[in-house]
Design a protein around this nucleic acid. Structure first.
Lengths: 150, 150
DNA sequence: AAATTACATGAGACTCATTATCATTTGCAG
DNA sequence: CTGCAAATGATAATGAGTCTCATGTAATTT
């Protein structure tokens, strides 16, 4: 079986004199199927567990090209390491809520905020290339189980 | 001369069994008066130039406590090192536009976005503790002087 | 299908921001 | 003025990420 993304990767890479190696396909497939926001080390460990042989250096290099060709998005949750998520629809942007207790990430999209960002940038003639919005706090599950403070 | 923030620091620290050392006052004063978004290394270099003796380790430790006691805000512009800015009014939040050409940082505040963030978090019962919004791109100065591509 | 070759990989050295260790110093309460 | 908990400085350690270089391998060419 070959996923849609894999076919697309082979096409895009061929058009750019890049090679569709098993390592690249493994990383891409993992991100596509997991739906999570994984860091490089986690990707490395999961591929090892699946008996895929790949080195850390290749993980980093692969993520770089996957980001460059818009297969994957690189995220910074301000905790010292980058996360990566699939980028199914490059036109559609979404933002993140990060639970600081359990680490779970919730995605959301708000067209009004997107529009306001555009307007703010234009006000000072700032050419917006990308933007990020993160909400940090405590998710409902973690909030409910909170221990009553003594 | 003693700035308001310095007086406040001495008070807050005394109330928490922390010491108001010259190094801490130097770091705080630098951030208060510069108005810039400085990283630890830059703070270290500027204090050395002013003949203040301080070590890198102390810079990092000091920034940690200044953040903890809300004198200073820690910012992550996703380029591998943290920046720090004064936090004059902890109730008032502002966001950042970062020029990826010259590195300049522009601040902005938009109450509508703030309100929307609150609403989004409440929708899924997420208790928002903090949030960040960064717009990355090219500032007007850098955009104007763009070299016409060959 | 074998040869070719430019691109990719693996292993490990390296960088650089940040944190930890520990002996020494110092703010400040009594 | 003294005692001591907290802070500092020097430096080692950590950890994410990058670089190097010898070797391997997609994919094109013959």
């Amino acid at each position: 079986m070959q996923t849609q993304a894999e076919g697309s990767l082979k096409r895009v890479f061929r058009d750019n004199a890049l090679k569709a190696t098993p390592q690249r396909l493994d990383v891409l497939k993992l991100l596509m199927t997991s739906g999570e926001h994984l860091d490089a080390e986690e990707i490395y460990k999961r591929l090892l567990k699946k008996k895929k042989n790949v080195s850390r250096a290749t993980i980093y290099r692969t993520l770089e090209v996957l980001v460059e060709y818009d297969f994957v998005r690189k995220l910074d949750f301000a905790d010292g390491r980058m996360r990566y998520e699939q980028n199914q629809n490059p036109d559609e942007h979404h933002d993140h809520m990060v639970c600081q207790v359990c680490g779970k990430v919730f995605e959301f999209f708000n067209p009004q905020i997107e529009a306001l960002q555009e307007a703010i940038a234009q006000e000072i003639n700032f050419q917006m290339l990308s933007h990020t919005m993160h909400i940090y706090g405590i998710c409902s599950a973690c909030g409910d189980s909170a221990d009553p403070v003594a």
